[in-house]
Write a protein that binds this DNA or RNA. Sequence first.
DNA 1: CAAAATTAAATTGCGCGCAAATTAATTTTG
DNA 2: CAAAATTAATTTGCGCGCAATTTAATTTTG
Lengths: 158, 158
Amino acid sequence: MTTKAAKFDTPTDEALALGRQLCFAVYSAAHAFNRTYKPMLDRFGLTYPQYLVLLALWQQDGMTVKRIGEELGLDSGTLSPLLKRLEAAGYIGRMRDPADERQVIVSLTESGRRLKTEAFTILAQIGKATGCSLEEIGELRDALQRLTRRLADNPQGD
Amino acid sequence: MTTKAAKFDTPTDEALALGRQLCFAVYSAAHAFNRTYKPMLDRFGLTYPQYLVLLALWQQDGMTVKRIGEELGLDSGTLSPLLKRLEAAGYIGRMRDPADERQVIVSLTESGRRLKTEAFTILAQIGKATGCSLEEIGELRDALQRLTRRLADNPQGD
DNA sequence: CAAAATTAAATTGCGCGCAAATTAATTTTG
DNA sequence: CAAAATTAATTTGCGCGCAATTTAATTTTG
């Protein structure tokens, strides 16, 4: 029906196919994770980014907004309203650092600390949903971390 | 200073560390891609999701909104306003399918088709920014596609 | 020490991303 | 064939995510 030469409209056209793009594979996987987490987090009235903040605080309570932002790669424009919602939900408290009133220190409430127990359950469910062995998960995660680092380091700008 | 047993507050505490989470690695990589694409797409007044729609249309012009949604994993609630903005920018046209007035057919304008040339340049820049070989990119992409499929297939719900 | 510069959060505005409700067209069925 | 069900797209509302601006506190410097 078509000749060999007519397979693609331009010589390298296939290179632009969605299925070939690493960025789209990452984009899709991020959405897939979000959708998998959603029903689990809905129970607790949490969104996925809010859950990430709690993960950070379970490791290290009492961080400033800036520090949390560095951990998650988010700025205060994203975190300020998100933290207010976490506070309204009763999982965290926020207070100005008396030693430097510019900073706001974020701390888990008793309710927020209690939630950590549930996180292990969620973790197990997610692990199961990925269908990956711990080894596979580790390798994929490390590869993505290397990729992220290289993309972030790139000074190419515009 | 600390005993062996006191290394972690609970036996499996380290499992919750952000750096250990595959989901967070994916989340961070998605943001890193977005930030890398942004200056390149800003030239053309495009956002990354808008660029994805164009990628889809360059492969197959004249799709319906629903079909585009299937390609990208997005619903009409996301696509409707996005497509209006692409239309306002002059890259696409939208018209009701005369054979089924429920459907809207999305087509590239001449300006939208012209943009395809630039996409090859962007692709090359991104490839460079990842610092990955074509082989590495392919492997990582395939691993992510398998992961996404398994997450999406999972019926676990709540 | 006071003015200028820097820093941390918060705020504003815009574009996703998704759930839920709405509108309009088509298909099913009774 | 008409009522009911289904389907496609739009709209509404909310929470990110980020750029840009604003506010307030601290640090630098002249």
